Structure formats: structure tokens, C-alpha cells
Amino acid sequence: MASHSGDSEAQARQTRLNLRASERQDALIRMAAQATNKTVTAFILDSASSAAEQVLADRRWFMLDDAAWDAFQDALERPAVVKPRLTELLSEEPDLFED
């Protein structure tokens, strides 16, 4: 996954993003930008770009060679293995009102 950190300043910015923030969010972002020696704009763009890459990472196309594809298909067709302890754990109801 390519990271855009650090190259935001070097790239020509051609579009504008507008956003509103609470005073708390504004202060938090400004402190974090200062702590990382970045402008607020660079900090926000780097952070938002990283978050966007993470969200989209599992939605991308992944290419497999023939051997990897065959192994993937074999894994999908393999029967499920029942794990009694896991079944027991997942069937337990949590105590939502525990003190």
C-alpha cells in the first residue's frame, strides 16, 4: 500500500476541501500537526489519505498466479472444521449488566 505521507507538500494542489470542526477537534488537530512538524493542511491530508487507503485496501483487485489461485480455490472448497471450544465461546451470551 503506497503512502502519501510527506509528499503532500511537494504535489501541486488543484482542488479544495472544506470542512467544519468543533473547537476540540480543531485544537487536537493543530496540536498533532505541530507535534509532527507539519502544517495543519499537510497533517489533515496525510491523515485522511492514510485512512482512505486503509478503508479501500480490502476492496482492491489482487492478482494471483495459477498456483496461488489453485491453492485459494482448494482452501475455499475444503470442508469446515468444527472447533467445539470456539462453538461454545460463540454461543455464550455476554453479561451486559455486569457491575
Rank of each mutant, 00 (worst) to 15 (best):
A2C: 10
A2S: 13
A2K: 13
S3I: 02
H4W: 08
E9A: 08
A12N: 05
R13E: 07
Q14K: 00
T15K: 04
R16S: 03
R16E: 12
L19R: 01
R20E: 02
R20Y: 06
A21C: 09
E23M: 02
E23P: 03
R24T: 15
Q25N: 05
Q25G: 02
D26A: 11
A27Q: 15
A27T: 11
L28K: 14
A35M: 07
A35E: 10
T36C: 04
T36Y: 09
T36W: 04
N37M: 06
T39S: 01
T39E: 06
V40E: 14
T41P: 10
F43I: 00
I44G: 02
D46M: 02
D46A: 00
S47F: 11
S47N: 10
S47L: 01
A48E: 08
S49I: 03
S50V: 07
S50I: 01
A52N: 08
Q54H: 09
Q54D: 05
Q54K: 03
V55F: 09
V55T: 11
L56Q: 08
L56H: 07
L56C: 05
D58M: 12
D58R: 01
W61F: 06
W61R: 01
F62C: 12
M63L: 15
D65S: 13
D66I: 15
A67P: 01
A68C: 12
W69N: 09
D70K: 08
A71R: 15
F72A: 05
Q73C: 09
D74G: 11
A75P: 07
A75S: 14
L76H: 14
P79A: 15
P79T: 06
A80Q: 11
A80E: 13
V82M: 13
V82R: 14
K83T: 04
K83H: 15
P84N: 07
P84D: 14
R85Q: 12
L86M: 04
L86V: 12
T87H: 01
T87R: 05
T87E: 00
E88V: 07
L90A: 09
L90M: 12
S91Q: 12
E92D: 05
E92Q: 11
E92S: 03
E92H: 05
P94D: 03
D95S: 14
F97M: 03
E98G: 04
E98Q: 03
